[in-house]
Design a protein around this nucleic acid. Structure first.
Lengths: 201, 201
DNA sequence: GATGCATGTGCAACCAGTTGCACATGCATC
DNA sequence: GATGCATGTGCAACTGGTTGCACATGCATC
């Protein structure tokens, strides 16, 4: 029972709705409640696609109306009931179709870049502090990724086929963090020239 | 004449409104019409912060109401009149204040990551094609950045202080593109194992 | 018994950005 | 003269996402 609006949306906006597809991937791997999905987005997928629980519930509702997922209530003891969502056949079709659509160039939005360009008009020390913070964030995120990598992919040259995609994503995440760290260090070198040893924190 | 809404917005949303700040930076460097700003966003700043001309006109209108910028009409011959915007003192204050606000971790949204995680549920060849396209896009963007770098910063070790921020942004852009290219190549190696020479396109 | 916390679902208001469209000038080209 | 293009400004409708809030269960802790 697709109404016109639904068809319109699927036809024209598919490329822009990656949150739906991220949820479909997550549910294709394992069924989950909205709450569990939100925590997965905090933990693994969320490193590459953030989503609040409110947004997830909203999208899940729409996806259920679109028959991409279906839910059933599960009673629990010691905790509130939960609504477990599972991907449908239509959802799997949509996910497969998504992989065949071309992806436009990534949109990157860098607050830090704007601040750097504002260097002549702003507070140099504050910007340096921001860069140090950013560097620390990248280091912490990288450490988390490396722990995941060591745990789940101890031998990167022999990743099982069904985990290859997830491994490549994690590897890309580590690359991005390392690149971010190097950029921060280049910036600090340029803005705070001093003995390299002092730049450890 | 700040109304309550305005104060509310400035107080709570400053960190999230980087487009305004990107425009302020651009206008601090040189006054411009909306049309010219849109082209700058296509050319230089836009590599790190996209904005359509419609969005720019909308934000400029709000910024003028907020007294961050001011405009005057300029008649031209052979072309339509234009409305040239200039940054105000208040705008410069706002820009300086922006540089002192902490920046949260960057939100990255990667369609490609979602597609990679969808590998077991989708079309491997189509994903490979997407990665090849992405790699080509990164190569083209990088070539553009390198041309800018060679032209405007022939000696990276001696960048004038007032251009340092812009140079660091450009350098970060090149880093990001090179990182993206390497990631694409890692993905292609993993998905299409073959003689390296064949992976040139 | 109150307070806080993890679990669990969701609405309402708002904001930023996209898409599609409208309309205007003046030049160059078919 | 029509058609297209670069220049120029902008509105209306919509979507994706954020923020703030509400409400519920049951456990542990003060």
């Amino acid at each position: 029972m697709c109404n016109w609006l639904h068809m319109h949306r699927v036809a024209y906006y598919r490329a822009a709705m990656a949150l739906e597809h991220a949820i479909l991937v997550s549910l294709a791997e394992r069924s989950a409640s909205g709450y569990e999905l939100a925590r997965r987005f905090d933990a693994s997928i969320g490193h590459f696609w953030k989503a609040s629980h409110q947004q997830i519930y909203k999208v899940l509702g729409r996806m259920e109306a679109d028959k991409l997922v279906e839910s059933h209530l599960v009673a629990q003891d010691g905790r509130p009931d939960k609504k477990v969502y599972a991907i449908t056949g239509e959802g799997r079709d949509e996910l497969a179709a998504f992989t065949t659509t071309p992806t436009g160039p990534e949109v990157l939005r860098s607050d830090l870049a704007v601040k750097l360009r504002a260097l002549p008009f702003g507070d140099r020390d504050a910007i340096v502090a921001t860069v140090r913070q950013r560097r620390a964030d990248h280091l912490a995120t990288l450490a988390g990724y490396e722990a995941s990598a060591a745990r789940y992919y101890p031998d990167p040259s022999a990743v099982p086929a069904e985990q290859l995609g997830a491994w490549l994503v994690l590897s890309g995440g580590m690359r991005a963090e390392r690149g971010g760290i190097e950029w921060c260090e280049e910036i600090l070198q340029a803005l705070v020239p001093q003995a390299p040893g002092e730049e450890t924190r």
